[in-house]
Design a protein around this nucleic acid. Sequence first.
DNA 1: TCTCAGATGCGTCGCATTCGCAAAAAAGGT
DNA 2: ACCTTTTTTGCGAATGCGACGCATCTGAGA
Lengths: 141, 141
Amino acid sequence: MEQSITDLCKEFGLRLTGPRRIIMQVLFDSSDHPDVVELHRRVTAIEPTISLATVYRTVNLLREKGVLERHTFGDGRARYETTPREHHDHLINVETGSVIEFQSEEIERLQEEIARKHGFAIVSHKLEIYVRPLKRGRGRT
Amino acid sequence: MEQSITDLCKEFGLRLTGPRRIIMQVLFDSSDHPDVVELHRRVTAIEPTISLATVYRTVNLLREKGVLERHTFGDGRARYETTPREHHDHLINVETGSVIEFQSEEIERLQEEIARKHGFAIVSHKLEIYVRPLKRGRGRT
DNA sequence: TCTCAGATGCGTCGCATTCGCAAAAAAGGT
DNA sequence: ACCTTTTTTGCGAATGCGACGCATCTGAGA
């Protein structure tokens, strides 16, 4: 993991600095979809002097390089995850805010088809399904 | 149309005020997906004294009531459309920012299936396909 | 070790949106 | 129409997220 951080920086011509190492470490250790403030919390737990601005700059850099993906899940602020090797979309539990990943070849295929029918090629896409548990204690609207 | 605005206000217990009437008029007359500033432009073309805050308050109110839908299409600001009677999703042309609506029963069905498999019921969902025009050797551009 | 482009921290700025408050205006009863 | 009550409005200030400018610091190659 240390090694891959070193390699990534080398590959993209980025300096392997202290803050950057820690931020990347935190990113790669996170399996959820933290926002920048949460990342900053995790980072400053390790090294308290790292500024929020640096976290912003780092996630932007890594996103440009394709290392991270950014999502927005309705709540206005951006959340990040390391780019998965297989594309997936998200189920968002509206009661807890937790995110579940899923894949559907079929939906992907249909999207392609729709875009093509309209004379377009897909650049990217975003499918978010906001859900609530199926239990009997159904909530109000 | 005047009538339906009156009815809507009555139905939701909202006062039918001057600004509100004009803002709703503009909303119902818009077939695109304007953002709040654009709405304010259209509204103040009719009645220049209406403030931006009132437009914000009105769209929020109407969204809570289910009269409007809000979208975010990546660019940071919210855009609105009157709730369509038939649900549709969006193709966003990344080169022009223009939005095309589409429907796919099939995708809807697959989403239901996925949610159910994970033990959830769908509250809402959002599918945005970011596209660019297909280049072709000849024919229209 | 020296050098210097790249990186950082801090403070500030910008944009979209929300809030607080006093004044204005709508619905309801008389 | 007039008063009363409650909602709405306009204004300006405040928020929140994110980006930026700049002086300072630092990693890594010579």
